[in-house]
Amino acid sequence: MIILLAIAIGSLFGGATYLILRRSVVKLILGLIMLSHGVNLLIFTMGDGVRRGGPPLVDASGQPPAGSADPLVQALILTAIVISFGFTAFVLALAYRSNQAAGSDDLDDLSTTDRL
């Protein structure tokens, strides 16, 4: 299980890096989305359920309750997903508007603020 997740995280990171290095704004944003998914999955693997096979909760007998998982990583991922959802909506709107204003999807054309 952990190997599969590691492969998945690695490919998400690799694909995200590739997309972020492209010149197109849309691909850049897709890369950011992929990157945030990769990080979410990474947090998921940090839960005790995946790594050690049990949650950190214990019942009265000192054993982990049956069928439960680490709740904290889920809370963290939920928060991270909500935040990245909001940011994605914002960045998409921003890219759309800057495409309208600059008439181009190419990052090389969006360099007026860097010129001397």
């Binding site: 960045v91 921003l94 508007r97 600059a102 969006l110």
Partner: peptide, 14 residues
Amino acid sequence: GSREQLEGGLKYVV
């Protein structure tokens, strides 16, 4: 939402 702001903003945001 001027062009400079959107371009600068995009880099800032990303």
